[in-house]
């Protein structure tokens, strides 16, 4: 027997002997920690939007190049400082953080939707359908996506957060498709699927009513991973100056800091704060993904300690 499974079984027996019910796998510490981190960011920016003047995120609304309030020359009027076009850093972060998360959310939604449909079709139906989808997704994964996204972004008349998310999503479907296809290939030979097939249940019902619920933890983990990937790609585009023009995002702030020689000028607050927020978001999403991964995979759960 797999030693990991043995450990899990032993742990469950110990728990039962101690009179406790087995802990719900959803009470995973990493999942909870990640959700709290992302939640705090969202709640903070939501509250920030209520209590702070977000119009200060526009150019020419504040004095230029002020440091944070605890540094000489700083002011409580702009607690996190300002940058070289007179934008308030706190307002930029309050407006930019949810926008950045929204980009990730759109990318993840689209890529997962396409991935679920294509992955199920390929994995369950097999044959020519599988061959075509597999070739398409394998080909898509070999494309140097950042280079192509740069070209596409350069030709977009007016870039906003949604447009950018759609561009990224165009290239983000191949990964989920391959992952889901592999899982479906494994699941379609399981007893309950065979039974459903023998009971003359339609293929669509088998795929999306019988098999899909069993994949939900994987899909959730994949969704979070897609979100992180979407944010990362968006930050890459924005850092190259190809992001939205007037809607602040964390990547756009970093891009403007690069253009404005912030590091050279010692304006650490200009790139430092958005970079910290981005890292916190990534860590939060990463923890959520690991947590979901452990929920879906007993081997990982057992090896946790």
């Amino acid at each position: 027997m797999d030693p990991t499974l043995t450990r899990i079984a032993e742990a469950e027996i110990e728990a039962e002997e101690a009179g406790a019910r087995p802990a719900s796998p959803w009470r995973n510490r990493k999942l909870v920690a990640g959700a709290v981190i992302v939640g705090v960011i969202l709640v903070s920016t939501f509250i920030g939007g209520l209590v702070w003047d977000t119009t200060l995120a526009r150019a020419a609304t504040s004095p230029l190049n002020l440091p944070p309030f605890w540094v000489d020359g700083g002011s409580m009027d702009h607690p996190l400082g300002t940058e070289n076009s007179g934008r308030d850093m706190l307002a930029l972060i309050v407006v930019g953080s949810p926008t950045t998360l929204r980009v990730g959310l759109i990318v993840a939604l689209i890529s997962m939707l396409v991935g679920v449909v294509l992955g199920f079709l390929a994995g369950y139906l097999g044959g020519a359908v599988d061959a075509v989808i597999r070739i398409l997704s394998d080909t898509a994964m070999t494309i140097p996506t950042l280079a192509i996204m740069i070209v596409i972004a350069a030709y977009i008349p007016e870039m906003n957060a949604t447009t950018m998310a759609l561009i990224i999503a165009v290239f983000a479907w191949a990964g989920p498709t391959r992952m889901i296809r592999a899982q479906v290939l494994s699941m379609r030979e399981q007893g309950y699927v065979r039974m459903a097939r023998l009971s003359a249940v339609s293929d669509t019902e088998i795929m999306f009513r019988e098999m899909l619920p069993n994949l939900l933890p994987y899909l959730a983990a994949s969704f979070i991973g897609g979100m992180s990937g979407g944010i990362l790609a968006a930050v890459g585009l924005e850092a190259l100056g190809l992001g939205p023009q007037r809607v602040p995002t964390l990547g756009m702030i970093v891009s403007q800091a690069i253009e404005g020689s912030a590091i050279l000028r010692g304006m650490w607050w200009w790139w430092g704060f958005p970079a910290i927020i981005l890292m916190v978001i990534f860590i939060g999403l990463f923890l959520i993904a690991i947590g979901l991964d452990e929920i879906a995979n007993p081997r990982l759960r057992g090896a946790r300690t």
Binding site: G115, M141, A174, G175, P176, R178, M179, Q183, Y218, A221, S222, I224, G225, G226, S228, G229, F286, A289, I290, L292, D293, A296, N297, L300
Partner: peptide, 8 residues
């Protein structure tokens, strides 16, 4: 099993 193609 894992978080899809955006691997760790």
């Amino acid at each position: 099993l894992g978080p899809a193609e955006l691997s760790r």
